Simulated scan of single mutants.
Amino acid sequence: MGRIPVPLKYTFKDGLEAILRNYRIEKGIRLKCYFPMGGGSGYSPFQHIHEVDNIDDFPNMVLSSSFDNVFEKNFFEKFIDKGYFQACQPKPLPPIYADCGIEDPEKRFTIFAVVPIVFLVDHWRLGGLPVPGRWSDILDPIYHDKIIVGGWRKDEKSPYSEFNTFLFLNIYKDHGIQGLKHLAYNTKNMLHYVHMSRIAGSDSELGAAIYIIPWFLADICPRRGKTSVIWPEDGALAFPFYILAKKAKLEELDVLIKYTTGRKIGQYLSDNCYPPLNPEVEYRYPENAKLKWLGWDYVRSNDTMELIRLASEVFFEAWQPLLFTKIET
């Protein structure tokens, strides 16, 4: 069972279907895969897979580009800490990933790619203010009403049902509740990432000076003469694409794992600014780029989903309380 961002879905699924077809012809074995297509489709099963009580009711392999409920403390205690899953991390690990510590030291999660979260700066709207260089910079009150973060809602009368909880968690980890309040003070608006990329550098009244946005969408902004992609000095936030594969099923999952972590799909991900952890691909990282990962000690010693709920509530309470949709467990 898998999901990845919409821009990657069709190429990823086409390759997956070819692999499965050839495997069925060569081995006479049909592997069942569920890979929903379209924006926002198929999310319900992912919202509830962590609720199973028996490991046999959990999919043999989950591939996800969401920092989701399998990171809840209860799921760790029930299944992950008991050794039901085994990482299949490609080696050797490229230095940018080794340096940020994103490989799971307990070898349960396979991290096969990341979404780097960066700054996209509109120089005209920034005016005479300094270009932010680090994550702590965006908390400075000189940037009041000059930041846009990722978020989506059905219409202007509805609260936000999706937003960048990973950003909130990172700010909370490094700067606490006060840091979230500073971010809220500086936030002008929440927009879908695609919309950010389209309006950055324009005279749209929805625009702002600083967009916190995935590298891929910052990179395709059409007004690059008026904007710059700023890679934070302390590292772009490394939002993980992960695999959870059952240890007892690794042999039959091998063809799927090799496809997902392999060079061909890895180069496609790298070319589209979703860099993989495969050491064989050519990377597009800027010179001296760093990644910033939460840290596995932090993930394992906290209920990160509970912290996400707390951080989101703090942010919206300081920003616009009526626009908040409470995060369900």
Rank of each mutant, 00 (worst) to 15 (best):
L63E: 08
F85P: 05
S66E: 11
Q86Y: 07
K73I: 11
D99S: 08
V62A: 06
A98R: 06
N60E: 15
I80K: 00
D99N: 12
M61I: 14
D99Q: 11
N60Y: 07
G101I: 01
E72W: 09
P92C: 05
D56G: 02
F76V: 01
V70L: 03
A98M: 01
D56R: 05
S64M: 15
N74F: 10
D68K: 00
K91Q: 15
P59S: 11
P59G: 08
K82Q: 10
A87E: 08
L63H: 04
G83K: 05
D56W: 00
K82M: 15
N60Q: 10
A87G: 06
I80N: 04
P59M: 13
F76P: 06
D57A: 10
P95G: 00
E72Y: 13
P94V: 01
I96H: 02
G101F: 06
Y84L: 02
F76N: 08
E72I: 10
K82D: 00
F67W: 03
F67A: 02
F75R: 14
Q86C: 15
L63N: 02
F79P: 14
Q89D: 08
K91C: 01
L63A: 04
K91W: 02
Q86R: 12
D68T: 06
D81M: 13
Y97V: 03
S66F: 14
K73F: 11
Q86E: 13
D81Q: 12
D81A: 05
P95V: 07
D56A: 11
I96T: 07
N69G: 04
L63Q: 09
Y97L: 07
P92Q: 04
Y97E: 07
E77P: 10
P92G: 07
V70N: 11
P59K: 05
Q89P: 14
E72N: 14
C100Y: 01
V70A: 06
S65M: 04
G83M: 12
Y84D: 05
I55W: 13
F58Y: 15
F67N: 03
D81K: 13
F76I: 05
S64H: 10
K91E: 14
G101P: 14
N74P: 09
D68I: 00
D56M: 05
A87L: 09
Q89L: 06
Y97N: 06
Q89A: 12
K78Q: 12
S65Q: 03
P94G: 00
C88A: 07
P94Y: 02
